[in-house]
Design a binder for these strands. Structure first.
Length: 429
DNA sequence: TACAATGATTGTTT
DNA sequence: AAACAATCATTGTA
């Protein structure tokens, strides 16, 4: 590729350097035609080359100086530069364009997004927020983990920045060194400023490839950190007792249709201090595990049913005795709704024994009361054995293939009345 | 330490 | 898009 220029360098270099010391017949160009003479000249030149290392520094400097002062030197030098420019640049010109490396851009983007590069504080908190969102956890109880995560991240960040700085410094040092060297040599060797620039850009490219390795390993470290700290599956915490109770109360009081609407989920999430997604997960898990082994959950079901029944009974008796609006817990309308539907409620319960019961056609509040009262009946009637209770629950709640009846969810049918208020009244206490 | 319980994820189905 | 089913990984307990 650059064989030609290199040959030219060495040739001209030797020729020029040896110029002051050449035999006279070479210098005035008279001995060129003589074959024996030429051989002799070449022998002389070789001899000079061989002894070049024996020269003292002063001697070399003197030769250099003589060379620089030669009257033909500037013109000749320019010509050499020109020739070199043409050959070298035309060869290398093609590969000059450097398209932005997509991988490098990807790494840069990721480092920026993770808060490793970019502004210190904003980046860090943004990453932490993103992490919080990704993990889907409640902000309050894993803030400790997040601070731990942030600490580790800033550690990575610090290493990254010191390394990056080191690389940059080394790159600059090396660049200036090479530039000085080239500039120095350019006085005796045909090196144009353009070529120096080119050399610098080559150096920068080399160093940036080293930087890319640094970025890559930093990205890997961040990914490992993320998976370690933020993979919710690894870091899961059981919900606290209260949250579990709230969820279970809702589940067992809506046993025939345990599909909370979006509003209900939001309300539950709020009450349990968890996310809506977690509520959905919980209900998904609960439904499937309940269905898989109803017997196992019998005791739990009875317990929650009894508890909710007491609440329901209290509410009913209060209503019939004084017809008072409601407890402070439940909104006035919800309370009166329950009250006014108490008649329907018992009708529904009566019809429970028949096949005509259609959960979807009954208001959700009524439905929850029905679910509750099933348990009440099972308890007060002395049906404490699992088998009897199973007979109470499963035929209505779960269809032949094991799923819940394909009834519309409360939200689609009764959301105006069901919503947060009803959740509240169902699960309060 | 083994095992059950449990929250989350993933892939499939509806 | 939501639900289901299977599975993973952690937590709690005997």
């Amino acid at each position: 590729m650059d064989e030609q220029p290199r040959l030219m360098h060495s040739h001209t270099g030797v020729g020029m350097a040896g110029h002051p010391g050449l035999p006279q017949h070479m210098q005035d160009g008279t001995g060129g035609s003589d074959g024996d003479g030429r051989k002799q000249d070449i022998g002389d030149i070789l001899q000079q080359i061989m002894t070049i290392t024996d020269q003292s520094l002063d001697e070399a400097q003197a030769r250099k100086h003589a060379l620089n002062c030669h009257r033909m030197k500037p013109a000749l030098f320019n010509v050499l530069c020109e020739i070199k420019e043409k050959t070298v640049l035309s060869i290398r010109g093609a590969q000059e364009e450097e398209p932005p490396d997509p991988q490098l851009m990807r790494l840069d983007n990721m480092l920026l997004a993770e808060g490793v590069s970019g502004p210190e504080k904003g980046g860090g908190s943004a990453a932490a927020a993103a992490a919080a969102a990704a993990s889907g956890g409640a902000g309050a109880d894993n803030s400790a983990e997040h601070s731990d995560y942030r600490a580790k991240l800033s550690q990575i960040r610090q290493i990254y920045h010191t390394e990056l700085e080191k690389y940059e410094q080394a790159c600059n040092e090396f660049t200036t060194h090479v530039m000085n060297l080239l500039r120095e040599q350019s006085r005796t060797r045909p090196i144009s400023p353009k070529e120096i620039e080119r050399m610098v850009s080559i150096i920068h490219r080399k160093f940036s490839s080293i930087q890319m390795q640094l970025k890559q390993s930093t990205c890997e470290a961040v990914m490992i950190l993320r998976s370690r700290f933020l993979d919710a599956r690894r870091k899961r915490r059981n919900f606290n007792k209260q949250a579990t109770e709230i969820l279970n109360e809702y589940f067992y009081s809506h046993l025939s249709n345990p599909y909370p609407s979006e509003e209900a989920k939001e309300e539950l999430a709020k009450k349990c201090a968890i996310t809506v997604a977690q509520v959905s997960n919980w209900f998904g898990n609960k439904r499937i595990r309940y269905k898989k082994n109803i017997g196992k959950f019998q005791e739990e079901a009875n317990m929650y049913a009894a508890r909710t029944a007491v609440n329901a009974a209290n509410a009913s008796s209060h209503g019939s005795q004084a017809n008072s609006p409601s407890t402070p817990n439940s909104a006035g309308s919800a309370g009166s709704f329950n009250m006014s539907n108490s008649g329907d409620l018992f009708m529904s319960v009566q019809s429970l024994n028949g096949d005509s019961y259609q959960g979807a056609q009954v208001g959700a509040n009524v439905q929850s009361q029905v679910d509750t009262l099933r348990h009440v009946i099972s308890q007060t009637g002395g049906y404490s054995e699992g088998l009897t209770a199973n007979q109470m629950y499963s035929p209505q709640g779960i269809n032949a293939n094991g799923g819940w009846p394909d009834a519309p969810t409360p939200s689609s049918v009764t959301s105006p009345t069901e919503g947060p208020g009803s959740v509240h009244s169902d699960t309060s206490n």
